[in-house]
Simulated assay, not measured.
Amino acid sequence: MWPLDPSRREVLRFAVSCRVLTLVLQVLTRFLGSSTPVVYWFPAYLLQHQEPLLRSLETVPWKPLAEDSPPGHNVPRNAIIGLLYNWKACSPVTRCILGYFLTYWLLGLLLHCNFLPWT
């Protein structure tokens, strides 16, 4: 193997350090996201205690899946879809939480499909 001149050595060092940094960040975020439920408990706590729309959804009975569904075959209403439909009526805290999770999902979808580092 030929000896590397200083500029190539610096480029190689930079490339390796960037790869190590992205690898560490990916492993760290995967580890924290999958093993630490606090990341999800805190936004759920905020939504449960500060969003009046969720309290109103608790009192609404389950709605049937379709008109021709068999009797007794009901599904619970999805509270997140209800919040997204009523985006303008949501509190600012709810908008921030939903915006964060939707942005994280969309960025992950776009970057992962293009083979970019994302967890």
Rank of each mutant, 00 (worst) to 15 (best):
L102T: 06
Y100Q: 03
V39F: 09
F101I: 01
W2Q: 09
T119F: 12
P71Q: 15
C18D: 13
E10Y: 12
L109D: 08
V11W: 01
F101H: 05
L84I: 15
F14A: 14
Y100M: 07
L110D: 01
Q48P: 00
E67W: 07
A89I: 02
Y104A: 09
T94N: 01
G108R: 10
C113W: 11
G72D: 10
P37R: 14
L110C: 09
V60M: 10
A15Y: 08
S56A: 15
W2D: 07
R30M: 11
L47P: 01
A44N: 03
L106I: 02
I97A: 01
D5V: 09
S17Q: 14
L110Q: 03
W2V: 08
T119M: 09
P61N: 07
A79C: 10
A66H: 05
P71I: 08
F115I: 06
T29S: 14
P52I: 04
C113L: 13
R55I: 06
V60G: 02
N86Y: 13
L53P: 00
L107A: 12
D5I: 14
P76H: 09
S35D: 05
S91A: 14
P43I: 06
L4D: 02
V16Y: 05
V11A: 10
M1S: 00
L65Q: 07
R13A: 15
A44Y: 03
L109G: 12
V27C: 13
F14Y: 07
Y85V: 12
P64N: 10
E58I: 04
L53V: 06
A66I: 00
F115Q: 12
K63M: 08
E67I: 09
L4R: 08
C90G: 03
L111G: 11
Y40S: 12
D5Y: 11
W87F: 10
C96Y: 04
K63C: 03
P92G: 06
Y104D: 06
T22K: 08
V11T: 04
T103H: 04
C18Q: 11
W2C: 03
G99E: 01
P76D: 11
H112N: 13
L83Q: 00
L28E: 02
L98I: 02
L28K: 02
T59P: 00
R77M: 08
S69V: 12
P117N: 06
P43W: 03
P3C: 13
L32G: 09
P71N: 12
V60S: 05
L102W: 02
A79K: 13
S91R: 09
R30D: 02
L54H: 00
V27M: 15
V27Y: 09
C90W: 01
E67C: 06
C113T: 08
P37D: 11
Y40M: 10
R77V: 12
W118S: 10
L116S: 04
N74S: 11
V93I: 10
W118L: 08
F42T: 05
V39R: 05
T59Y: 04
Y40C: 04
S56Q: 13
I80E: 07
R95H: 04
Q50V: 07
S35C: 12
W105A: 09
T29N: 07
L32D: 03
L65H: 05
R30V: 03
Y40G: 07
L83F: 01
T59L: 15
L111Y: 13
T59W: 06
P37G: 11
T94L: 01
E51G: 00
C90L: 09
L84D: 02
L21Y: 08
M1N: 00
L102M: 14
L65I: 15
